[in-house]
Design a protein around this nucleic acid. Structure first.
Lengths: 151, 151
DNA sequence: GCATATCCTATCGATCAAGTAGGATTCAAG
DNA sequence: CTTGAATCCTACTTGATCGATAGGATATGC
């Protein structure tokens, strides 16, 4: 479940927009407050705009704002907008894989893994990510000390 | 949760070894039966050997076999041996991330996502992956039609 | 018309992924 | 004690992608 710099930046930008909603915030302001490269932030905001997750306003006093309410946008949507699909197996969708011999059951495993990832990123809204009030299922996942240990 | 070609190949090789356990199987035989490049398979088997997941025997009649019983090796271990950690956020471990402002709660989200991935790959053994008799929790994840749909 | 934004196109260096090449080394069987 | 089949080691290539930057065209409010 590798999240690229683009993905991380996009979510940071999105939760910042969620917190300021419905005010519009400029790219330089977003970049400054989250300490990321301004030009790169512009590129990412372009991706989010083309995915219809944010609206943009040009000119002085312009900037970006979420297209929908922060409660109605999931983190998964943001990540998909900038990186592609949440889960890929050697560049293919899990359900598109197919194997011979001892590996015939692997597609089910890949699909299960994707479902697990979705159950986190598609079930957390930008509003929840901003406030830290995660759904119970998500909170439970982070409750065990073990979840915080590298492996 | 991107799985690279190395990762996919490694798991396919591992379940093949699990099925043949405890016989030793040569790299060319593994490559042939799973239809993957022989030289690349050799590289991957080297990774698995250095991770102490497989033992190798040189010479004629040589080959590879699992170091432990197929029930005692998880898919997660195989994936970690060839790609690195299951989950990384911009190249860092989830628990090592840290943010200012609206993004302060994101580390919990990253940790939750990693926990979700682990709950699949670390809970499925090579024996289960080979037979298709997955744990109930995993089977449930693949039961819904929705799990098989792209998004 | 000027300051401040977004927006568009192009480029760049570094890194990595996937795979290949060639051969040195090991070992059992005959 | 040779031979053939296997692991193992080092190096290389090729292409794509990632993370960014540059420079300016375009829009907008005052």
């Amino acid at each position: 479940m590798q999240v690229s710099a683009r993905g991380e930046y996009a979510v940071r930008i999105a939760v910042t927009l969620a917190t300021g909603h419905p005010r519009t915030i400029s790219a330089s302001s977003l970049a400054a407050v989250q300490a990321l490269p301004r030009k790169f932030a512009e590129v990412i905001l372009g991706d989010l705009r083309r995915a219809h997750l944010v609206d943009s306003v040009r000119g002085v006093e312009g900037g970006y704002r979420l297209s929908r309410e922060p409660e109605a946008v999931s983190v998964g949507e943001v990540l998909r907008a900038v990186d592609g699909p949440l889960s890929e197996i050697r560049g293919r969708r899990p359900e598109e894989t197919s194997y011979e011999g001892a590996a015939v059951n692997l597609p089910r495993l890949w699909v299960a893994a994707r479902a697990a990832v979705r159950s986190v990123f598609d079930e957390v809204s930008l509003a929840q990510a901003a406030t830290g009030e995660f759904p119970v299922r998500i909170a439970e996942l982070t409750a065990a000390d073990e979840a915080w240990m590298p492996r």
